[in-house]
C-alpha cells in the first residue's frame, strides 16, 4: 500500500514538473512513469540499506538508463525524460533542513545535513554520468558496426 502511494505521489509530482518544463504532450505520462520508477528505486534502496546517497545514485541511474532507452525508442532527446525524471530525487528537503539548522544555530547538524545534501546532488550527477556515457559508447560501437 505504502509502495502504491509513493508511486502515485511521485508520478503526479513528476508530471507537474514536466508541464512546467513544457514537455511534448505525448510524453507526459511516460515521463511521469520514469520519475516514479526513479523514486521507487530510491525508496527500495533506502529501505534496504538506509543510505539516501546510495538510494539517490541508483534512482538517478535508473532514470538515466530508462530515459536513454526511451529516447532511442521514441526518437526524442533524452533530456525530455531525464530532466523531469530526476526532480523527485533533487534534495530540496536537504536544502531546507540545512538552512533550518543554520538559522537555529545548530551548526553541527547543518554540517551533517549539508554534507549529505551535497553528496546527494553529486550522486544524481554520477548516476546520470554513468548512464549517458554508457549510451554514448553503445552508440559509438553501433556506428562502427554499420
Amino acid at each position: 500500500m505504502e509502495f502504491i502511494k509513493q508511486f502515485v505521489f511521485s508520478f503526479f509530482g513528476t508530471i507537474g514538473a514536466s508541464i512546467l518544463f513544457s514537455i511534448p504532450r505525448d510524453s507526459i505520462i511516460v515521463s511521469g512513469t520514469v520519475g516514479a520508477l526513479g523514486w521507487m528505486t530510491y525508496t527500495a534502496i533506502l529501505g534496504r540499506y538506509s543510505s539516501p546517497v546510495a538510494g539517490t545514485f541508483f534512482g538517478a541511474l535508473a532514470v538515466g538508463i530508462i530515459g536513454e532507452l526511451l529516447a532511442r525508442h521514441l526518437k526524442k532527446p533524452a533530456t525530455v525524460f531525464i530532466i523531469p525524471g530526476i526532480i523527485p530525487l533533487v534534495p530540496g528537503a536537504g536544502m531546507y533542513y540545512t538552512m533550518l539548522a543554520l538559522i537555529e544555530k545548530r551548526f553541527l547538524d547543518a554540517a551533517n545535513i549539508g554534507t549529505e545534501t551535497l553528496f546527494i546532488a553529486v550522486a544524481i550527477s554520477i548516476g546520470i554520468v554513468i548512464s549517458s556515457s554508457l549510451s554514448r559508447s553503445i552508440k559509438r560501437v553501433q556506428n562502427k558496426a554499420q
Binding site: 514538473a17 533530456t79 530532466i83 533533487v90 530540496g92 536544502m95 546520470i128 549517458s132
Partner: peptide, 15 residues
C-alpha cells in the same frame, strides 16, 4: 520549492 530546484542545470552541467 520543488518547482524552483535546479534540475535542468544539474542534468545539463553533467551531460
Amino acid at each position: 520549492i520543488m518547482s524552483l530546484v535546479p534540475g535542468v542545470a544539474i542534468t545539463n552541467a553533467i551531460r
